[in-house]
Design a protein around this nucleic acid. Structure first.
Lengths: 161, 161
DNA sequence: ATGGTCGCGCAATTTTATTGCGCTGGATGG
DNA sequence: CCATCCAGCGCAATAAAATTGCGCGACCAT
């Protein structure tokens, strides 16, 4: 599952634009289309590339507001966590959800059209599951957002180039 | 820029899998390939669809750890914000960056291989810009992560269907 | 040196995207 | 009420891209 320099360059390109023809990717990484295509296939089979998706403009679909919701709980057990996860899965407004260390137990990112819609979301949420301590922080603006992961840490084999 | 039911269905599909052939999308939304294709084109022109990207598995590229970094500052002016943004742009580890209301001024999500790499990142960051108050919260696990935005809020025109 | 393997590139072949064109229903204005 | 217009659809042709089959040369371990 190790990646060499060419693989990483391919990934870097695909993370920016997944519509780029394989032939062009090949040209940019110094490879003909066939080997380039096979590398991409392999990375998809290996699960390095999970999927290809369309990224929408949040404002254009009326979810321009991001809220970070911190949750503290008394329930520190597997079963409760599963239930919580299940509930969250039902909410498409929750686009990210993390189990945290430290002060807060869970953190989620929620996208909504406005404050009022957040309130509606909030009420629906607490009606589905009992939460001890919830705290909401509103984002005034998104300065940076990327789906592209840094590739500088990826495991490499030989790669003297 | 309004979207009808079919548009939203198309977006929903493309948010999950952008490799799906237009013909198949058309079939699923009850349309032949041409009008379906044209709708997609229009949504790309309108910027509703921003781009299509490959989503990688964080663990597979060795950035399995997420850290949320909260920043408070004394510098509350446009110029400083621009500088900060510029600095952050240089760090591919920072995948999200928000200007916040309330307690914290800025919040960013950082992805790294491990705690040690985070420390390295942290040191590099504070060497680039002077930050008054920084607080790091480690995610123990990512329970949910999706690039798919909820479409239930999107503006609709007629759409009696 | 020799057999085996891996990764490459070329040249089909297949699949998908893209375009041109004509049809139809509903809305418009006289 | 009728003629006209326009938006959006589908079919069929064309162009572009993906996918596959095959042979070649480099490298490794015998």
């Amino acid at each position: 599952m190790a990646l060499d320099k060419i693989d990483r360059k391919i990934l870097s390109l695909l993370q920016k634009d997944a519509t780029m023809p394989v032939a062009e990717i090949g040209r940019k990484v110094g490879l003909s289309t066939t080997p380039c295509w096979r590398r991409i296939q392999k990375m998809e089979e290996d699960g390095v590339i999970q999927r290809r998706v369309a990224v929408l403009d949040p404002s254009k679909v009326n979810v321009g507001v991001t809220v970070f919701v911190s949750v503290k709980t008394n329930e520190h057990n597997e079963a409760w966590m599963r239930k919580f996860s299940g509930v969250i899965d039902e909410f498409p407004e929750v686009v990210e959800f993390y189990r945290m260390s430290g002060d807060v137990d869970y953190l989620m990112r929620v996208v909504v059209p406005d404050i009022h819609a957040y309130d509606t979301f909030y009420k629906r949420l607490i009606s589905k599951i009992n939460l001890t301590d919830v705290s909401s922080a509103f984002a005034m603006g998104q300065i940076k957002y990327t789906t592209a992961l840094p590739l500088d840490f990826a495991i490499v084999v030989d790669d003297d180039k």
